[in-house]
């Protein structure tokens, strides 16, 4: 009973807890257009029960951070920790992010550019990723087909730290050309064999060969996506340590375009507001109901928690 309640709670709230993702400001899928202040970390992603690690290299070669190169590599097992421990087929997934950025000056500066409080960067990037999952066959055999997905993303982005009056803010925006799939839209399903044993009036049912996977119309599509992340850090909230804001993820082209919007609060490390240790968001999925899957606006949303540590 407790297990059912727990599963219901998870399904209703769509809670995913992510510990220490390399991307400090991110949505439920781990996407972000903010790359400023990225740091090294190790990740434990309990959202999909997997362990991953990432390595980031920022290179500074002048008197300012005028140019930098970032590399983020993360790996994980395709179905999480349990699959590794139980000795099933190991198909490691990876994410490789490479980006190159440069300091720019687009907006007007005051008399002393070194103390204007405006920090701007432009960057280009590429991301390559793979994933494996089981897809339920449509032939009523209740069997799964193994699917492999190899995706990519090419990005051009812009980050700015600035202020509106005395209110500091951080904004990131990017335009992305991606090969994506609709795995997130599919339903998760389980199949298993059962055998029943009758002893007197008692019946014992055994479940074995349980397999998990996805069900639905699977497709991949190339698409142009627009990302926007914006956070403000008012002084009254723990001396700038707490920020509020959110993100917009717009799939502009390709199959099943949609717009997701997230809003929430982030808590930064002491003395480093942009190193998030805790984030609480509510994500509104498909805000214009373009997919026409759920008419109730509130039911298309879900809570997202992020916890992290940077070093």
């Amino acid at each position: 009973m407790r297990k059912i309640i727990l599963l219901l709670a998870i399904n209703i709230l769509h809670v995913s807890i992510i510990f220490g993702q390399y991307s400090l400001f991110q949505d439920k899928a781990g996407q972000s257009s903010i790359i400023l202040n990225n740091k090294n970390n190790v990740n434990l992603n309990t959202g999909n029960a997997s362990i991953s690690g990432s390595y980031l290299k920022n290179s500074v070669n002048t008197n300012n951070i005028e140019k930098f190169i970032g590399i983020v590599l993360s790996c994980k097992a395709n179905n999480g920790v349990t699959e590794i421990l139980q000795g099933y087929t190991f198909k490691p997934q990876f994410n490789l992010n490479i980006y190159l950025g440069k300091s720019i000056k687009l907006i007007a500066r005051h008399s002393n550019p070194d103390t204007s409080g405006n920090i701007e960067y432009a960057y280009i990037g590429a991301k390559f990723t793979n994933s494996y999952f089981n897809l339920l066959n449509k032939d009523s055999s209740y069997s799964f087909a193994s699917k492999a997905f190899y995706g990519y993303k090419f990005t051009i982005g812009y980050n700015i730290i600035s202020h509106f009056g005395t209110l500091p803010f951080l904004i990131g925006t990017s335009l992305n050309f991606e090969l994506i799939n609709n795995q997130q839209d599919l339903s998760t399903v389980e199949t298993y064999l059962t055998s029943s044993h009758f002893v007197g009036n008692n019946t014992t049912t055994l479940q074995k060969n349980m397999k998990t996977g996805y069900s639905g119309d699977y497709f991949t599509t190339s698409a142009i996506l627009y990302y926007l992340d914006a956070y403000a850090y008012p002084e009254i909230l723990k001396q700038h340590r707490i920020g509020f804001g959110g993100y917009l993820r717009s799939q502009l082209t390709g199959q099943a375009p949609r717009n997701n919007l997230g809003a929430g609060l982030v808590l930064g490390q002491k003395g480093s507001p942009t190193n998030i240790v805790l984030g609480f968001f509510y994500q509104f999925n498909d805000i214009f109901n373009q997919l026409d899957k759920q008419n109730d606006f509130l039911k298309r949303g879900g809570v997202n928690l992020i916890a992290g540590y940077n070093f």
Binding site: D114, T115, I119, Q239, H240, K270, S272, P273
Partner: peptide
Amino acid sequence: MSCEAISGTD
């Protein structure tokens, strides 16, 4: 000395 980072950075 001058430097820039989002307000609240030690």
